[in-house]
Every structure is written in structure tokens, then in C-alpha cells.
Write a protein that binds this DNA or RNA. Structure first.
Length: 598
RNA sequence: GGCCCGGUAGUUCAGUCGGUUUAGAAUGCCGCCCUGUCACGGCGGAGAUCAUGGGUUCAAGUCCCAUCCGGGUCGCCA
């Protein structure tokens, strides 16, 4: 019984033909002498009819035994449905297959949840039975889209002269950056590989090796805590090019994105993308990845509120901080309760509090009303464009806290007030990133991007004397407030690279121990080069309109970094550990699943 | 590591102030009936370690403590 058609592909053109289809029983409607089965394969659904009066008894009897998710093969004739029985909700709703032969290829246990779109089931159940979850059409679509995305990317880069080159999964552990996943080496007792956080160094060395244009769709690993958009292993589209300017890279990537959206979801993305420097992004949107699907910029009102009796604002301004606000149109009647919630909300991001001005019909309401004149409130209204009915939410603190808290509050208000068009795609390049950021925890400057990023030429003199003012030739691609890619022009001069290591607090010995092979390579004729990497999971997540990258990864980990289907990670045999010269100090874990299910 | 939310039939939920409940509903499942359904319909039935452990109480799904599990988030993520 060899399949001739896919379920979802059959149309009126096949009417009269004998077809053989295979798939899973999605729904069975048993009317006694007449049974309908919606048969599903990866292409979609088709209705199969079993008519007691018109078929042999054994076959009909078999049809009566069908249950959800049985795997069957059906031979039958395609028939046009009568006008009253056409189902416009189904792609194949014009036709049905009248079964003449039924083969039950496999029975199935009753699944723990419905195999259909839009289910509301605890994610742990979905992940445990991932093979059933993935059987749902919307998940199938996501995985198919992901395939399509990778395919378009490969075609684009191939056509533009790029080579896909694989790099090692077993690498040297490097300082800086995320925590490494370590892999013990059996043949080198006591020594460890690290799984790559990205192929960064290898792709640069491939430039030294003269490949000029490299790309790779590659798995990366970072042992950090998980989020809706962060998995310990994730996929990057990794790119590096020689003899190019920043402009060349941005243009090449815009072309790739344009083609990608056109060919995989049929959306036209206008190019070139908007550009914004990092300082502006932080100042205006309180984020290095602004969501431009709505406006609501942060506005500085320090000059209007300084020098008053209101100690909170004064103290902040005098110590070099600032008072900024966002304007929420038509929300002057925000419930007091909600304001209390928002105070807590900004505190998450380090703000000590939140103030507000309600320009309501009954007049101005504000916790600091008594400290300021009506004129001051009028001036603030003028400066911010606030009209009667509008709400200003105000945060006072040092710059980074104000920007972060208000930036997050802006997003919260954007969602709450329905200002975000769910179909909008707003691309943006954020450029001119700072080279360093200060780590309070480690009391030192850390590379904001990574230590191979080239500082702007005019800032090189400040690398050691004033790292905070150095800007880098680094850029991020942002889509709808999500960082989907980032990269930089690289340092290609060994001395400059050493200087940057020094600025990061690495001694020449440490630098040499960790990156010596790279520094060596750089002495043998390194071309100017640069590149970037995209987060493939995040990109597909947005294209598929999902809220979590778990929905576009076939077998993701849960928030505790566990695969609940295969139950990884797990303890291993003493023998394995002995071979690796490893002794485990962690207490034995009880089997987490011993008191659960079956 | 911190904060927030959650855990009750296979699934999704309800369960008030601790007591009239034998812990309900929907859906799924099982059986019988049903020839034009497409979320088919009708009748009947089975199905619960109320996450786990301890405590308070005459009495705990409900209150308290601890633990486990899940999700979101801050820190973290070059």
C-alpha cells in the first residue's frame, strides 16, 4: 500500500481518482452506519468516509475500532462533497475520500493532550511528550519555517561568495563572557574542553587563513540561567568577512534579511534600516534594543523640577542624576492601585520609586504637587506635550537607573495601552556601542561586546586612561525590541589586541595563555575583517509570532536546563567518572521522577 | 541566589470565612444507540496520594512552616 498523495494537498482536481493516503487519526465522528475520520499528515487534513452500506463489512468493522492518533493507510476514491456538506474551514473541505481499504499501521495510546493548535496545557506536559507536541500543526509549521529560514540563508550566502565552514565543538576555555560548558578529556586526565560560546576566534582565524567570506549555522553553548528567549544551547548564523567596511557588512545583512522575510514568510522589508547610535537609544528609549513599534520617548525634565523644596528630586540632581519621564496618552485616570503596582515594577530595575503627574479633567494630581507652582506643571506639560487626560510617569535617579527603569516601564505601558501593532516589523541598527562597561561585581572594565572588537580609531588613545569614553565599531540588529544579531569590526593588529587585553585587566601572560594562538596568528598577515552573528532561534521566534524560542526549537530544555523528555542531565556510572579522573562532590540526587507519572 | 505567580480526575479549571460534599464541572476516556458530520449528537459509566513532608485545630484541598516541581523575571547572559 504505497502512498500516492498527502492529505492536505488533495483538491477538486483529484475528484474521481483513486488515492492512497497515510497519517494519524485526528478526529473520528461515528454516526453508527457512517463514520468520518479527519486524517492528518504533515501537509494537513482530509476527511475520510466509511459508509456501512457501501463497503465490505470487515473494513467497516475496522473503521469502528479507530481511535485518536492511530496510524492508518487508506485507499479510496476522491469524491466532491455535496454543496451542503462542504466545509469551508478546511483546505480540503471541498472533497472527501470514500474508503475502500483500510490498514491500521499502528494503534496508539490516548494522548495526554489534544493534538491540535491553540491548546492550553502546562508546558512540562508538552515537553515530556514532545513527540506529540511536535505533531501539532502549529509546531510543525514552526519547525518547517525554521528549515526554510536556514535554507534561504545558505542560498543567499552561497550566492554572495560565502563558504560554510565548520568549526570545533571541543574548544579551549576562554575567560571573559559567559560561563563555559566543560567537557572532560579522557586521554588528558584533569583537562577540559569547553563547548563554544560562539565560533568567534575560529572565524577570525579563518580570515587570517584567507577564506575572506565565511558563514556557518552553528550551535553555541552558554551555561547561564535560562529565559523565554535564552537556552543553554542555541543556534547562530555566524558570519565573518575580510577587506570590508562596517557599511559593507550592514548592507550585506540587510540584503539577507530582506530576502529571508520575502522568501520564508512573504513579507517585504524595506531597506536600508534605520540607524541609531547607542547613546541616543539609551537616552530616548532607555534600552540598547529599542522597540520602535510605538513611540513614547523618555524625556528629561530635570531643569523644570530642580531647586525646589522637593528633596527627592534635588538630591538626585545635585548628585549628578536626572529626572526623566514618559508620557502615557489618555491615561490620567489610571487607577491608584495600578500606580502602586508600577512603583513596585520600577523597583525591580533599581529605581527607588516612581512619581507621576496626572493631567486630569479635575486638575493636576501628583505626589509632589505641593512643592511646585501651577506654572511649573504648565511648563512641564508644554515641554512634554502633555494634554489634559495624559499621564506622566517620572523616575529620578542616576542616569543608568532612570533609563533602564523608564525603558522597561515604557514597554509595559506600550503593552498595557495596546500601542503595539502585532504585525509590525521594525528593524533598527544600533551603532557606536561603548567599548567597555563597568562591572561593579568584579570592579573592572569588561568588554561590552567581546575583547576582539575594534575601538574607534579616534578613541584608541583613551583605552587605558579613560575606558568609559571609548566607543567601538560595534553594531546590533534589533527587531521589535529584540536583539536579533550583533557584531563588530575586529582588531587585526597584535599590539592593539594586547593593549585591549591589558585594559581588561589581563596580564600579558594571561592573555598569552588564553589567546596566544590567536595573537600568534595575527602576526602572519591578518586582513582587516569584521562580521556578526544572528540568533537564529530568536529570529524564527519573531517570524513565527511566538513568545518563546522553545516553540521554535524541536527539543528545548526547561527553565532548569533539563530535557524533561530524555531526562538529561543525569548521573553517570562510577566507571565513566573513573575513566575521566573525575570525583563528584555534589550530594546524590534522588530520581526526580520516581514519584511522578506511570 | 533574590522576587512574583502556580501545582486539585488524562487535560483545563471551580472549590467562599477551615465545617451540609460522598471534592464538583467541562473536555477526554470506556460502553450502548445513531447514515452527512466536521468541536457531530443522545443515554449510561469509570476516573482524584487535592505536589511531598511536618505543624496548628474537635475538624485542613482550604491556615502555618519546610521541601520538590513548573513558568515569568532581576542578577547573570563577552
Amino acid at each position: 500500500m504505497k502512498r500516492t498523495h498527502h492529505c492536505g494537498d488533495i483538491r477538486k482536481t483529484e475528484v474521481g481518482q483513486e488515492v492512497i493516503v497515510c497519517g494519524w487519526v485526528s478526529r473520528r465522528r461515528d454516526h453508527g452506519g457512517l463514520i468520518f475520520v479527519d486524517l492528518r499528515d504533515r501537509s494537513g487534513y482530509v476527511q475520510v468516509v466509511y459508509d456501512e452500506a457501501a463497503m465490505n463489512e470487515g473494513t467497516f468493522h475496522k473503521a469502528e475500532s479507530l481511535r485518536s492518533e492511530f496510524v492508518i493507510g487508506v485507499r479510496g476514491k476522491v469524491r466532491a462533497r455535496s454543496e451542503e456538506t462542504v466545509n469551508p474551514k478546511m483546505e480540503t473541505g471541498d472533497i472527501e475520500i470514500v474508503c475502500t481499504e483500510l490498514r491500521i499501521l499502528n494503534k496508539a495510546k490516548t494522548p495526554p493532550f489534544y493534538i491540535q493548535d491553540g491548546i492550553d496545557v502546562d508546558e512540562k506536559v508538552r515537553l515530556k511528550y514532545r513527540y506529540l507536541d511536535l505533531r501539532r500543526p502549529e509546531m510543525q509549521k514552526n519547525i518547517m519555517l525554521r528549515h526554510r529560514v536556514a535554507k534561504v540563508m545558505r542560498d543567499y550566502f552561497d550566492r554572495n561568495g560565502f563558504l560554510e565552514i565548520e568549526t570545533p565543538m571541543l574548544c579551549k576555555s576562554t575567560p571573559e563572557g559567559a560561563r563555559d560548558f566543560l567537557v572532560p578529556s579522557r586521554v588528558n586526565p584533569g583537562q577540559f574542553y569547553a563547548l563554544p560560546q560562539s565560533p568567534q576566534i575560529f572565524k577570525q582565524i579563518l580570515q587570517v587563513a584567507g577564506f575572506e567570506k565565511y558563514f556557518q549555522i552553528v550551535r553555541c553553548f552558554r551555561d547561564e540561567d535560562l529565559r523565554a528567549d535564552r537556552q543553554p544551547e542555541f543556534t547562530q548564523l555566524d558570519i565573518e568577512m575580510s577587506f570590508i567596511s562596517q557599511e559593507d557588512i550592514l548592507t550585506m545583512m540587510e540584503g539577507m534579511i530582506k530576502e529571508l522575510f520575502q522568501k520564508s514568510i512573504g513579507v517585504d522589508v524595506p531597506t536600508p534600516f534605520e540607524r541609531m547610535d547607542w547613546d541616543t537609544a539609551m537616552d530616548k528609549y532607555g534600552s540598547d534594543k529599542p522597540d520602535l513599534r510605538f513611540d513614547m520617548p523618555l524625556m528629561d525634565i530635570s531643569e523644570y523640577v530642580k531647586g525646589s523644596e522637593f528633596k527627592v528630586f534635588n538630591a538626585v540632581i545635585e548628585s549628578g542624576g536626572m529626572v526623566k519621564c514618559i508620557k502615557v496618552d489618555g491615561y490620567a485616570d489610571i487607577p491608584r492601585r495600578r500606580l502602586d503596582d508600577l512603583v513596585k515594577f520600577v523597583q525591580i530595575y533599581g529605581a527607588k520609586g516612581l512619581a507621576w503627574i496626572q493631567y486630569s479633567e479635575e486638575g493636576i494630581k501628583s505626589p509632589f504637587k505641593k512643592f511646585y507652582s501651577d506654572e511649573t506643571f504648565a511648563k512641564i506639560a508644554e515641554a512634554t506635550g502633555a494634554k489634559t487626560g495624559d499621564l506622566l510617569l517620572v523616575v529620578a535617579d542616576k542616569r543608568l537607573v532612570v533609563d533602564t527603569a523608564l525603558g522597561q516601564l515604557r514597554l509595559e505601558m506600550g503593552k498595557e495601552r495596546g500601542l503595539i501593532d502585532p504585525d509590525a516589523l521594525r528593524f533598527l541598527w544600533v551603532v557606536d556601542f561603548p567599548m567597555y562597561e563597568w562591572s561593579d561585581e568584579e570592579k573592572r572594565w569588561k568588554a561590552m561586546h567581546h575583547p576582539f572588537t575594534a575601538p574607534r580609531d579616534e578613541d584608541i588613545e583613551y583605552l587605558l586612561s579613560d575606558p568609559g569614553r571609548v566607543k567601538a565599531n560595534a553594531y546590533d540588529m534589533v527587531l521589535n525590541g529584540v536583539e536579533i544579531g550583533g557584531g563588530s569590526l575586529r582588531i587585526y593588529n597584535a599590539e592593539l589586541q594586547e593593549k585591549v587585553f591589558e585594559s581588561l585587566g589581563l596580564t600579558p601572560e594571561q592573555a598569552h595563555q588564553k589567546f596566544g594562538f590567536m595573537m600568534d596568528a595575527f602576526q602572519y598577515g591578518t586582513p582587516p575583517h569584521g562580521g556578526l552573528a544572528f540568533g537564529l532561534d530568536r529570529l524564527v521566534m519573531i517570524m513565527a509570532k511566538c513568545d518563546s524560542i522553545r516553540d521554535v526549537i524541536a527539543f528545548p530544555k526547561n527553565q532548569s536546563a533539563r530535557d524533561v523528555m530524555s531526562e538529561a542531565p543525569s548521573e553517570v556510572d562510577e566507571k565513566q567518572l573513573r575513566e575521566l579522573s573525575i570525583r563528584v562532590s555534589a550530594p546524590k540526587k534522588k530520581d526526580k521522577n520516581e514519584n511522578k507519572d506511570n
